[in-house]
Protein backbone atom coordinates (compact mmCIF):
# COMPACT_ATOMS: atom_id res chain seq x y z
CA UNK A 1 0.00 0.00 0.00
CA UNK A 2 1.32 3.40 -0.97
CA UNK A 3 2.02 5.82 1.77
CA UNK A 4 2.31 9.58 2.01
CA UNK A 5 5.56 11.14 3.03
CA UNK A 6 3.79 14.35 3.93
CA UNK A 7 0.60 16.27 3.17
CA UNK A 8 0.95 19.98 2.67
CA UNK A 9 -2.04 22.10 3.51
CA UNK A 10 -2.36 25.73 2.52
CA UNK A 11 -4.66 27.04 5.22
CA UNK A 12 -4.85 30.46 3.57
CA UNK A 13 -6.45 28.96 0.51
CA UNK A 14 -8.57 26.29 2.18
CA UNK A 15 -12.19 27.41 2.36
CA UNK A 16 -13.29 24.57 4.56
CA UNK A 17 -15.68 22.86 2.14
CA UNK A 18 -14.84 19.49 3.68
CA UNK A 19 -14.82 17.69 0.32
CA UNK A 20 -11.39 16.23 1.07
CA UNK A 21 -12.29 15.08 4.55
CA UNK A 22 -15.50 13.43 3.42
CA UNK A 23 -13.99 11.74 0.36
CA UNK A 24 -10.94 10.41 2.18
CA UNK A 25 -11.36 6.62 2.23
CA UNK A 26 -9.15 6.11 5.32
CA UNK A 27 -10.27 8.96 7.55
CA UNK A 28 -6.80 10.51 7.56
CA UNK A 29 -8.02 14.12 7.48
CA UNK A 30 -10.15 16.17 9.82
CA UNK A 31 -11.53 19.68 10.18
CA UNK A 32 -9.88 21.96 12.73
CA UNK A 33 -11.23 25.48 13.10
CA UNK A 34 -13.11 25.17 9.78
CA UNK A 35 -9.96 24.22 7.86
CA UNK A 36 -8.63 20.86 6.81
CA UNK A 37 -5.88 19.30 8.91
CA UNK A 38 -4.02 16.01 8.85
CA UNK A 39 -5.44 13.76 11.52
CA UNK A 40 -3.26 10.72 10.97
CA UNK A 41 -0.60 10.66 8.28
CA UNK A 42 -0.04 6.94 8.88
CA UNK A 43 -3.56 6.21 7.66
CA UNK A 44 -3.01 8.00 4.34
CA UNK A 45 -2.70 5.62 1.41
CA UNK A 46 -1.73 8.40 -1.03
CA UNK A 47 -4.79 7.73 -3.19
CA UNK A 48 -4.72 11.45 -4.09
CA UNK A 49 -8.52 11.76 -3.94
CA UNK A 50 -8.25 14.78 -1.68
CA UNK A 51 -5.68 16.56 -3.82
CA UNK A 52 -7.53 15.77 -7.02
CA UNK A 53 -10.84 17.13 -5.79
CA UNK A 54 -9.72 20.03 -3.65
CA UNK A 55 -11.20 23.04 -5.47
CA UNK A 56 -8.88 25.42 -3.67
CA UNK A 57 -5.41 24.11 -4.57
CA UNK A 58 -5.01 23.74 -0.81
CA UNK A 59 -3.84 20.13 -0.43
CA UNK A 60 -0.73 18.57 -1.88
CA UNK A 61 0.07 14.94 -1.11
CA UNK A 62 3.69 13.83 -1.44
CA UNK A 63 3.89 10.11 -2.00
CA UNK A 64 6.57 8.12 -0.28
CA UNK A 65 9.07 6.72 -2.74
CA UNK A 66 8.91 2.91 -2.66
CA UNK A 67 11.26 1.48 -0.07
Amino acid sequence: MAKAERIEINKKWCKGCEICVELCPTNALEMVDFKVAVKDLEKCIACMQCELRCPDFAIVVYKKEKE
Binding site: K12, W13, K15, G16, C17, E18, I19, L52, R53, C54, P55, D56, F57
Partner: peptide, 13 residues
Protein backbone atom coordinates in the same frame (compact mmCIF):
# COMPACT_ATOMS: atom_id res chain seq x y z
CA UNK B 1 -5.31 32.72 -5.34
CA UNK B 2 -7.40 32.10 -3.32
CA UNK B 3 -9.99 32.33 -6.09
CA UNK B 4 -13.35 34.01 -5.71
CA UNK B 5 -15.40 30.82 -5.81
CA UNK B 6 -17.45 29.74 -2.78
CA UNK B 7 -16.46 26.95 -0.46
CA UNK B 8 -17.34 23.70 -2.16
CA UNK B 9 -17.81 25.21 -5.63
CA UNK B 10 -16.38 22.65 -7.99
CA UNK B 11 -14.93 25.08 -10.52
CA UNK B 12 -11.55 24.85 -8.85
CA UNK B 13 -11.51 21.10 -9.49
Amino acid sequence: LPHIWCAGCTYGI
